[in-house]
Design a protein around this nucleic acid. Sequence first.
DNA 1: TATGAATGAGGTTTCATTCAT
DNA 2: CATGAATGAAACCTCATTCAT
Lengths: 223, 223, 223, 223
Amino acid sequence: MEKSDDISKPRRGEIEASQDRSRRTREKLVTAFGALLREKAFEAITMAELAERSGVAVGTVYRRFANKEALIPVIFEVYLQMLQTQSTDNSRHMTLEDDDTLWDATLKLCKAAWDVLERDPQLIRSAHLYARLRPDLVGEDWDDIIEGSVGQFRQLIDHFSDEVQRPDADGAARMVFYLLNTVMVEQGLYGDAGPGAALKVDTPAFIEDCATTVYGYLTVGEA
Amino acid sequence: MEKSDDISKPRRGEIEASQDRSRRTREKLVTAFGALLREKAFEAITMAELAERSGVAVGTVYRRFANKEALIPVIFEVYLQMLQTQSTDNSRHMTLEDDDTLWDATLKLCKAAWDVLERDPQLIRSAHLYARLRPDLVGEDWDDIIEGSVGQFRQLIDHFSDEVQRPDADGAARMVFYLLNTVMVEQGLYGDAGPGAALKVDTPAFIEDCATTVYGYLTVGEA
Amino acid sequence: MEKSDDISKPRRGEIEASQDRSRRTREKLVTAFGALLREKAFEAITMAELAERSGVAVGTVYRRFANKEALIPVIFEVYLQMLQTQSTDNSRHMTLEDDDTLWDATLKLCKAAWDVLERDPQLIRSAHLYARLRPDLVGEDWDDIIEGSVGQFRQLIDHFSDEVQRPDADGAARMVFYLLNTVMVEQGLYGDAGPGAALKVDTPAFIEDCATTVYGYLTVGEA
Amino acid sequence: MEKSDDISKPRRGEIEASQDRSRRTREKLVTAFGALLREKAFEAITMAELAERSGVAVGTVYRRFANKEALIPVIFEVYLQMLQTQSTDNSRHMTLEDDDTLWDATLKLCKAAWDVLERDPQLIRSAHLYARLRPDLVGEDWDDIIEGSVGQFRQLIDHFSDEVQRPDADGAARMVFYLLNTVMVEQGLYGDAGPGAALKVDTPAFIEDCATTVYGYLTVGEA
DNA sequence: TATGAATGAGGTTTCATTCAT
DNA sequence: CATGAATGAAACCTCATTCAT
């Protein structure tokens, strides 16, 4: 794969890094930024903080990123990196056994999604928030994230095409992605706050309910 | 309905309004605040702005609300008001006909929910955001909102109890509330931004997909 | 005694109280103000606080006292009241026995002074502070306080005139008053803070040192 | 003298000044602050005023001092500086002649102390006030001031040990420091205001009375 | 006359951004 | 180029004082 997510790829609002030294600076910045994103919300991260954490001067940050806004695309870059690392680690979880049913597979999927969520909630929160707040700044990483996941769901659906009732397989895969990325993320990030306050179940039951939802969506016939 | 949510009910962090004059001031403040909430995010509203919009001095705002935080509960007050106004207006939508099936009812429900969402997305956004960010400040309005909705879903489930496969009716009603308040709100507030970018369908199709999801969740049998 | 320190005597910046009702209001205000002065510094007392504590409205405070400054003279009024109450209570302490020496009397004096100080340090602090900060506002109460005390010391000096070496009895009495009101008040109010940090003695030893100072001042001959 | 109290030594609550430029800024700030302290009370000095007077922006003040509180230790820094400058200037005053008696020395001491007081009353007032109000913030400068002075008095006492009646030389030196720093400072700062109103003597007579007090304290025998 | 709501100047503090070194 | 000191607009909040009821 030639996906260009090498850490020094410049984004919108970024200043091109011509020299070797500046490439290293960018790496330092992105690494420190990623660490900070796991600790606190993007709004709460100050430029001075980022500079200090990166071991560079404030002015140097501005040499790479024209302003704070230019860091928003990097949120998604960091998010994508994390997903890729995790998906490598978790590939065993996701491997379907020969005798797995659609239900088994759906449940595995939901469990895996939950694991990811539990790992870096703050980061995911910022990514989800700024994907909504500044959709103009998401960059192509977000698309990559989506299409990667949708592809997975598509495989699942194709594999169990006889059980699945939805006529449009691609559309169904997209809806499943959407469902998990709203329903589960919501609970993973905010738990009992927000609409989650309505729920009176523990985590395993919630995950099963999510699986039921997805399974139901896929298998229910025309009403 | 005799619920005492008239506009002048004082909340946490508020200063009691004993006189008529100050009650009128509170109304001015809440009204202006509601208008601002429909225009911009809570964080972006400054105390000076609220004062000016209300036609009072800054100090007057602080006479009613101890600090900016004390305004957060008012977000939910405004939200609840809006929901009540809408539910009165929309009651015809929601009336079930005698020959309605579970599917028909579910679809009606989703359509009604969507209508609400389209009306005041910014307000709902702030409510959902601060219900997550500051769950300690939501007050009882948020509970009222939840329990009111859950009750509606419960009625639906009970009415079609022969079709519904979920053993725990109350739990199922809560999950349906949760589903709609994440899946639909997400799309209603952010549309193609965020996970919604995965979706490639128009609004009516999306609403139908939501209905399918809920319907599937309720009717699918043990896997 | 016809000293006019009846509680409703109007001072500079005050509004004359013509009616009975307003005289009662003044009493309420002065009482509440006295209580507050024992709790916190004058600067930290807000007009709203004084109003609430007095059980009247803010506007009513301004009907009696033109502004916050007009309350400063009342500090001394309260102080004087306190001294008079205490001196009545403590008269036994101060009674000289027939066989008392100058040293005995001096020590008794210092002990009594310390007792007063320990009772209402905050009030005394405000009185001393504002006597310095706003000497224009002290009124005649402060003079009364001084002359009353100086008189006491004068009696002492006259009684032991054979032991006392200072030629000017009145001047010496004034110096003794001054000594105690700086040396002891300092330690009574601030203890180890300020210059008191230099001292490494306990309270009884400090009181004795004060007595030694006064006694030394009175009895030392020409150098 | 090699004491490291050059103007750029950083104190509690301060941000370290690493560069030359920022050291110069700190000097500007401390100088302007010192000037302001001689003009008005610390409470009355606003951050904006300090910034303007220093010729820097408000933010710059906050870059050196985390908040207004962090300036309190600087009061004592300025005070100590002043004392050191003065003590250099006044060293001739203080030099004891061979044939000086204890009385002569005491009088010289009191005169020198008075000179200092007359120079910068406002500054000394702030120092004395905040040493009492915020003893937690005085820093070590205040201790230096005290121990330096106590040492001087100790020398005096030791030099005339045959005349001095106090058994504990160190304790006596501390009491003398305390006496002068209450009795004289009071008169120097507030003059006829406060307890000073009792005094009816001119300055030379007052100084002599102070000397008498100290001399009496040191030389009076057991009562 | 009493009330207490309303006023608004003024103070402290934060932080993205600029720019001299 | 990198540095980090300096900038200053803008936000929050307080409280003595005024004034409509």
